[in-house]
Design a protein around this nucleic acid. Structure first.
Lengths: 335, 335
DNA sequence: GCGGTCACTGAAAACGTTTTCAGTGTTTCT
DNA sequence: AGAAACACTGAAAACGTTTTCAGTGACCGC
């Protein structure tokens, strides 16, 4: 049988209450504390976290719900979240929704059953709207995608500004027929699209935006169709790293030199984007800071549940590379 | 206050035992079961998993301990593990060790406290040796890296054969001075190195292997030094995706055309490896199957704790691309 | 010297479930 | 018809902690 606090108490010649206090923080004399610690070593006692959680009504657990951990953006964010959590003595339960509202709902129910301390959540548009604070017993921090204003804390990118900056750069390089391929499921993609359209309007250009499921395969298929059409764009803005990859594959498949026949600009400064030729112009997101900020917001909310809702807006950093250089050869030259 | 099984029982006019049985599987008449279900809906009851775990002495939780979730290999494996776990009604606790033995020990202790059902573990060499089955109360399945034979179940790649295949391919393409850059912390890298050295010997060639911390920055630095030396290799074998990326960066930094001046062959068929120019020859690991197999081994072990230790060895699939083609130009041509 | 704080301690009551145990009543066998 | 099996149910005992409550003795200020 497993060794419990009872056995430690017996070995140390004290009550279970004293053992509990010696292990946690409670008023215990130094003498007894040492006795208890010796007994713990002797017995090899390890506390049972389930029991502790039940009694103390504090699970020290947070939920992290994202679309797909294989998306490098979420990978990086989740690593930052987990580091912060473990450092604060908390556990993380990670859930992948695949952008599916049904699974989101299921995982939120799971969070309720786990009695989590809080949740960090990258919701689809549907769930972001539907999640009323009254329905859940824990605070939620939205990341990447914000919900309706004022309902939950959130940390997001200034998506409109970032998309706008990409358009400005492309226009400055002389591109005119600039299309945009945006994810269909997230508010983030919506905002990027809005920023794109606003910037196009500002430059007096006609926007041409299309929506696509945010994965490389779907993006490649849609971009492939688009590039085969008559009035195909001479530049494309892609709303995340997976779509960017899909678009690049489509350009390769159609043998369109980048940026000679097609310029590409996207989001997420993944390690490979400067290894391809030409390097890809992207908006770099401060992934680690997004995760860390989300944890900070969550901890603050736990400390002061009634403080006003906060929204942290971080700026993306444009990383300009060959894929948007007007004069550059289509491919083959290395900078 | 939160609604408990007691409230449901009162609402349904039955005992808590009956509610418990109606929700789980126990003998309950259809009439009462419906009453209970109605009461659950009416009260909005959600079971408390901490209490359930404490009483039932079954946490339905598995630990997943890897070096770094940002390594795409582990990302993919962990996604497969989590899918399998959630499908079986289990939770996953994910831990990143950064190849640090201290953190490994700390997380293993955490697993004890969580009273996990089992653990899937990619250990450093040190921990793999030290982990005696007697010290822990749960079964462990090693992935990627096996421990001492016979101690724990494991699912690994046939690393020696895979490395050997890369050497054979390079030799066939006419390369002779073939070097190898291998991770310094894992048994996996050791095996790949051994396979490399054996194959070199078989071909009557002199091996030249170096060890490096398994991350892109360290690999780039070491490869950079090596490529600046007089008798630098004309081909390199890299023991994982991160090291491969570092080596490619070093080659670029030294303006060495690939494969003209330096051929590259590595492990992990990450999505970007066929987007760079030339595409990189790699060994593709069956990442999803590794994760799924690990869960299968774990479940089997739980069902039959005393069955003999099993070791599942999967084969890598060589993906031959331009980076190892002897006649190919250094760069610029697209296949 | 005495009332009052103080620092510590143990017995026992939670925490919210599942599971055991001991019935019920009903059916099935002989 | 009586015994034996069966299907279901509720009271109460766990599960391993933390926390409350009620002390105990030591110390302090007067």
């Amino acid at each position: 049988m497993s060794v419990g606090i009872r056995d430690v108490a017996r070995a140390a010649g004290v009550s279970t209450a004293t053992v509990s206090r010696a292990l946690g923080r409670g008023p215990v004399s130094d003498a007894l504390r040492e006795q208890v610690e010796a007994a713990v070593r002797a017995t090899g006692y390890r506390p049972n976290l389930s029991a502790r959680r039940l009694r103390s009504q504090s699970t020290q657990t947070i939920g992290l719900i994202v679309a797909d951990i294989r998306n490098p953006f979420f990978t990086a964010v989740s690593r930052a979240v987990e580091d912060a959590a473990y450092q604060a003595g908390m556990r993380v339960i990670l859930c992948n929704t695949d952008e599916d509202a049904t699974r989101e709902a299921m995982y939120l129910r799971l969070m309720q059953e786990e009695r989590v301390t809080g949740v960090i959540f990258a919701p689809t548009r549907a769930s972001a709207q539907g999640l009323r604070a009254a329905d859940i017993d824990f605070p939620v921090v939205f990341i990447d995608r914000a919900g309706p204003p004022g309902a939950h804390d959130s940390v997001v990118l200034d998506n409109a500004a970032a998309a706008s900056a990409l358009v400005d750069h492309l226009v400055e390089e002389g591109f005119r027929r600039i299309g945009g391929l945006f994810g269909s499921t997230s508010s983030t993609a919506q905002e990027r699209r809005a920023g794109y359209e606003a910037a196009m309007a500002r430059h007096g250009l006609a926007p041409a935006a299309r929506a696509v499921l945010p994965n490389a395969a779907a993006a490649e298929a849609e971009a492939g169709r688009w590039l085969a059409e008559a009035g195909r764009p001479e530049a494309l803005i892609l709303s995340n790293g997976l779509i960017l990859m899909g678009a690049l594959r489509a350009a390769r498949a159609h043998a369109l030199p980048v940026p000679g026949a097609l310029a590409l600009a996207g989001f997420d400064n993944e390690p490979w984007t400067d290894l391809v030729d030409p390097g890809l112009t992207v908006i770099e997101q401060p992934v680690a800071e997004i995760g860390a900020q989300a944890m900070t917001l969550l901890f603050d909310r736990l400390k002061a549940p009634d403080q006003p809702v906060r929204k942290v807006v971080l700026s993306g950093r444009p990383v300009l590379r060959g894929s948007t250089r007007r004069g550059a050869p289509g491919s083959g030259a290395r900078a």
